[in-house]
Design a protein around this nucleic acid. Sequence first.
DNA 1: CCCCGTGATTGACACGTTTCAATACCCGCT
DNA 2: AGCGGGTATTGAAACGTGTCAATCACGGGG
Lengths: 348, 348
Amino acid sequence: MEPSERADRPVGINDVAARAGVSAGTVSNVLNRPERVSEATRIRVERAIEELDYVRNSSGRNLRSGRSDSVGLVVLDVTNPFFTEVAQGVEDVAAEDGLAVVLLNSAERRDRQRRSARLLAEQRAAGAVVMPVDGDTEDLLWLRKQGVCGVLLDRGDVGPETACSVSVDNRAGGAAAARHLIGLGHERVTFLSGPEGLEQCRTRLQGLREGLAEVGIDPESAVRVVHTAQLNAESGEKAVEEVLAGGPGRRPTAVFCANDQLALGVLKGLGERGLSAPADLSVVGYDDVATASLVHPGLTTVAQPKYELGCSAMRLLLSELNDPGHRHERLRFTPELVVRGSTAVNRG
Amino acid sequence: MEPSERADRPVGINDVAARAGVSAGTVSNVLNRPERVSEATRIRVERAIEELDYVRNSSGRNLRSGRSDSVGLVVLDVTNPFFTEVAQGVEDVAAEDGLAVVLLNSAERRDRQRRSARLLAEQRAAGAVVMPVDGDTEDLLWLRKQGVCGVLLDRGDVGPETACSVSVDNRAGGAAAARHLIGLGHERVTFLSGPEGLEQCRTRLQGLREGLAEVGIDPESAVRVVHTAQLNAESGEKAVEEVLAGGPGRRPTAVFCANDQLALGVLKGLGERGLSAPADLSVVGYDDVATASLVHPGLTTVAQPKYELGCSAMRLLLSELNDPGHRHERLRFTPELVVRGSTAVNRG
DNA sequence: CCCCGTGATTGACACGTTTCAATACCCGCT
DNA sequence: AGCGGGTATTGAAACGTGTCAATCACGGGG
């Protein structure tokens, strides 16, 4: 139709310039600093852009500026609703600034985390929000050395002189669960943990113990710890047997799970054995994922501000990117206990 | 420490070349076609790369090649477990080929879908897997015109001469649900749909009707349709009232939900009214998300091969990218009914 | 001793954009 | 008419990489 339609070479800024009868620099100005160009030419250029269906090539732009306009989000498990809500927050805030979010999934594996970091470095990403596998912040530090500023999210620790970080007070969460259970008269509780060595699990356990100690209960004898292979429902279901074990006298009256997924698994496992919460066992989870309110009985759980976590992490990142007087910040949220039906007064 | 450590200008291919005493072209060859370079120099270059901690700049590479090495995945809702499982599949397959996945969230909004498309075009993404909002394939076509080859996933339709597509046979899914309910003696069923006009909902409903007609039941009188504002649990919960409405004689004995989220909401809503499935109402969902097996009673649902959906979409995309003799393909899965506790024989 | 073939390496250019110093233009004032 | 000052536009130079024709080094064969 249009005789000026060239071969299949994509249309570039020069084609637009030619069509509008101006230089490439002017087109660039129209795109980036419209105030510097007269209205007449601006309109002419805009029409040319429209007519040619020009879309700018960000490779060129990034090459020139040495910086890309996308940020990375390295997440531990895309299928875990906790992380996707965080991602939602990150993305919404990033969108306000026109930044694209590259979602990388480390699947809890160090090698994949490393690959993700390399990738972001190669892209010269503007920044990255990373939830390190297992508290391993090495890749984050490497990224920063490469000039990609990174914010630490929810796990691990680097000094506040090194990078921003946002986290939730896991100790307080554990203590809140403890106080709730004590208030209901529970004195023997099992902590259902994830794989050994996970920092967040350890800290939640620590909070639980401290909460018990506060009221004079000896944590050593009152809490027993059971480890699972993974932080998912299947593991929780399988662990029910072991949670309940220990002889009738020593059978716990409550279980505090490191994770909602685990807790949901426990609820299911109880049902399969003809038992139920809270009659046979009070169950407390952690995270407050959407499903927690859908099961019956509803899951009592320690709620984390997931969406806000993502938002604030991204805001800190934006501040570091745009604000020249930026000082690293260490943001810390306090979780809140949400009481639903899975816990009740101990009638043991 | 190293006196050769330059200013904070990032190290480029030229720095490596200088350090190794070769030309930039040779370094590039080491990186991209190692077989063309002698072993001695290759080792020397590799050491230089190591020593300088060089990471290549993909802006330059992409600019040169006119193509980036990442693919887009445009998804309707990052927080919906259905989509995240699909994303998992896409990502796993992409990782095999060293492609990065940029996850874009259209949040069911046309404008955000358009933004995502623009972004991918600007990045000159190698390809895109897109689940169009509301069957709107316009952006996909535009992307293809821009040279970004796109695969259509799960919704909408373009002719197979235009692009590859992967979908699930929604009609068969609806029919399977119908057969199951008929087998249990249900003859009055409500279809709980999403917002009006969603193609997938319409087709599932159509399948339901056809399944009923097969055995001589008149769909017109047997099925009633209730629409909700969104395809989420909250909407399902709110819709319970309306689902149950219609007077005792006309009260349905079963409800078929367009979505597991809706179905889970219905289960919750029933509980809040002192009712329960399947005693008061048999409930069937669609998708088989992880939660479906965790609630009590377990949710009978039409299972979609979510992970495989993602894998195949990405495979088709890879084929189009790498295989010169590629022919567009239209892949179609058949869903499978998973029977759990939320449905039972009609004792009305 | 020269020529030629082969394989390794180089040098220069192209990719599409932004930036910035330099220029062209216009207007009002002396 | 000439000049100063402001604004609009241009032209050329980067940015870091991949490619490819041209060159170089090295031996073997005539």
